[in-house]
Every structure is written in structure tokens, then in C-alpha cells.
């Protein structure tokens, strides 16, 4: 029960994060609710996978795949290209914390530090930097996964197949 409440809490705040960026990117007003739902469910899936023992990279990938598929379904009803819906929705999953720790690490490395601290810093920085890169790669691969699988240049062509 405690867990469920925690997930509902996160679900809500992930959605808020997504629509914050949606507004910053000036999306059409009709898509805001969709982006909230996409961001909330994608991010929640990431946390569920993390809780099941998956890595952050795997979690982000499947979260982004979910967002990618849902964005294609929603694109038909909201008359907006899927990536307009998908990019703000995956932004809460962008590895900001890893990227920022990696950048701070790089800057600390240039300061005067002794050998042992340097090695420890280098280890942390590499770890954070690699995680940031691979999470980002997983996100953009996940968002484009549906297009890569269906091999269509536009979702408009897929409409016929879904309805027939």
C-alpha cells in the first residue's frame, strides 16, 4: 500500500515535469493532457523496472519505448507529429543528474588534487558520464523504436493499417 502511494505520487509529479517542458517548448494546447499521461506512465514504468532490479539504462529504454508507442497512437487523435508528444514526455527521464555530476567531476579533475582523490574522481566521473550517455541513447532509441520497427516514414501511412 505504501509502495502504491509512492508510485501514484511519482506518477503525478513525472506528469507535471513533462507538461512543464511541454509549455517551455510551446506545444499546441490540445496536446498538453496527452503529454502529461505519456510522461507519467513512461516515467512510472522506468521506476517499476528499477524496483524489479533492472538497470537505469534498461528502465529508461523501456519507459521511452512505451512513450514512443503511445505517442503514435495519440498522434492520430491529437493531429500532431508523434515526436512533439514524445520529446516533452521523455524529458523527465533525461539523465540530468548523471550529466551534471559528470560535468562537475570533469571540472574538479582540473583542480589541484592528490593522486588518490584524482583516481576516485576519475572513476566517478567516467561512471556518471557513461551512464548519462547510454541513458540518453536508450531514450532516443526507445522513442524512435516504433518507427524503426514499422519502417514507415510517417505515421499517417500507418493509420490505414490500424483501422482496416
Amino acid at each position: 500500500m505504501e509502495d502504491l502511494l509512492l508510485y501514484i505520487d511519482r506518477w503525478f509529479w513525472l506528469g507535471v515535469g513533462a507538461i512543464g517542458f511541454a509549455i517551455l517548448f510551446n506545444v499546441p494546447r490540445r496536446t498538453i493532457l496527452t503529454i502529461f499521461l505519456l510522461g507519467a506512465f513512461g516515467g512510472t514504468l522506468k521506476f517499476i523496472i528499477l524496483a524489479l532490479g533492472g538497470s537505469i539504462i534498461m528502465g529508461s529504454f523501456f519507459g521511452a519505448v512505451l512513450v514512443g508507442f503511445l505517442s503514435i497512437l495519440a498522434a492520430h487523435y491529437k493531429h500532431a507529429p508523434p515526436f512533439v508528444l514524445a520529446i516533452p514526455a521523455v524529458i523527465p527521464m533525461v539523465p540530468g543528474a548523471f550529466a551534471y555530476r559528470a560535468m562537475l567531476g570533469v571540472i574538479h579533475l582540473t583542480e589541484k588534487v592528490d593522486h588518490d582523490t584524482f583516481l576516485k574522481l576519475l572513476e566517478e566521473t567516467t561512471d556518471n558520464g557513461l551512464k548519462a550517455f547510454f541513458v540518453l541513447a536508450a531514450l532516443s532509441l526507445g522513442v524512435s523504436a516504433p518507427m524503426l520497427i514499422f519502417r514507415r516514414e510517417s505515421v499517417k501511412n500507418m493509420k490505414v493499417r490500424i483501422k482496416s
Binding site: 511519482r10 507535471v16 513533462a18 509549455i23
Partner: peptide
């Protein structure tokens, strides 16, 4: 003001998720 408030809410949301 909508942009400012919503983006700030998104920042607070990230903090909450953390």
C-alpha cells in the same frame, strides 16, 4: 507567467521525484 510558473513546477516535480 504561465511559462515561468509551469517550468518552475516542473523543477519542483523533478525534486519530488528525486
Amino acid at each position: 507567467w504561465v511559462v515561468l510558473v509551469m517550468v518552475s513546477a516542473a523543477g519542483a516535480a523533478f525534486c519530488r521525484v528525486f
